[in-house]
C-alpha cells in the first residue's frame, strides 16, 4: 500500500483536481484519474526534497475554514481603509519570531499572513527564525504578533507537529 501510494493525501488531491477539471463524475474519468493519481506521485516523488506529515488532517480542514472566514473579513477591512480619507493609516514593519520549523509549515504561515487582515509577509529572516511583516494599520505591534501566534501558528504547530 505505502509502496504503491507513497503520498495518499497528494493522490487524493490529484484525483479531486482531475475530476474538477473534467467537471463531471463518470466511471471513465474516475478510472483515468485514479491511474494518474497513482502514477504522478510515484514518478515525481524523487523531486520532493521535504518530508511533511499531516498529523491532524481534521484540524487542517478547520484551519482552512478559519482562514476562509478571515479572508472575507480582511477584504472588508482593506476596502474600508481604501475608501477612508488618506493619511489616516499607520503602517509598520514588524519582525515576527517563528516558533515553527520546516519549509512547508513556514510557507503556509507566510501565505496565511499575506491573506489575512492588514498584514503581508515580506521576507524570511536570514536565520530562518523570523518573518518580516508589513502591516497596513496597527496600533500595537505586540498585539498583532500575539494574534498571529494564537490564531494560526499554534494550530499549524498542532497540525504538523513541528
Amino acid at each position: 500500500m505505502s509502496k504503491l501510494v507513497p503520498a495518499p493525501w497528494w493522490s487524493l488531491f490529484l484525483l479531486a483536481f482531475w475530476l474538477l477539471l473534467q467537471n463531471k463524475v463518470s466511471v471513465g474519468a474516475t478510472l483515468l484519474g485514479l491511474v494518474l493519481a497513482i502514477i504522478i506521485p510515484l514518478y515525481t516523488l524523487r523531486a520532493r526534497d521535504y518530508r511533511t506529515t499531516l498529523h491532524h488532517p481534521l484540524l487542517g480542514v478547520q484551519y482552512f475554514f478559519i482562514l476562509l472566514g478571515d479572508i472575507i473579513v480582511s477584504n472588508f477591512n482593506i476596502a474600508a481603509i481604501i475608501l477612508r480619507p488618506r493619511k489616516s493609516i499607520k503602517p509598520a514593519l514588524i519582525e515576527f519570531p517563528l516558533a515553527i520549523s520546516g519549509s512547508v509549515p513556514i510557507t503556509i504561515l507566510a501565505s496565511t499572513i499575506s491573506l489575512t487582515p492588514g498584514t503581508i509577509s515580506a521576507e524570511l529572516g536570514r536565520d530562518g527564525r523570523s518573518i518580516l511583516i508589513h502591516a497596513l494599520n496597527v496600533d500595537d505591534p505586540e498585539a498583532t504578533i500575539q494574534q498571529i501566534k494564537q490564531r494560526y501558528e499554534r494550530r499549524l504547530k498542532e497540525i504538523f507537529q513541528c
Binding site: I89, P91, I120
Partner: peptide, 28 residues
C-alpha cells in the same frame, strides 16, 4: 471588490501599502 482593490493601488501612500489592496481584494 475588484474595483476597490484597483482603487487601492491608486489611493494608498507607498509601495508596500499598495501591495495590500490587490492581494486581498482580488480574492473576494
Amino acid at each position: 471588490f475588484a474595483f476597490i482593490g484597483s482603487l487601492g493601488l491608486l489611493r494608498l501612500p507607498d509601495f508596500m501599502a499598495r501591495l495590500h489592496a490587490p492581494t486581498k481584494n482580488t480574492t473576494l
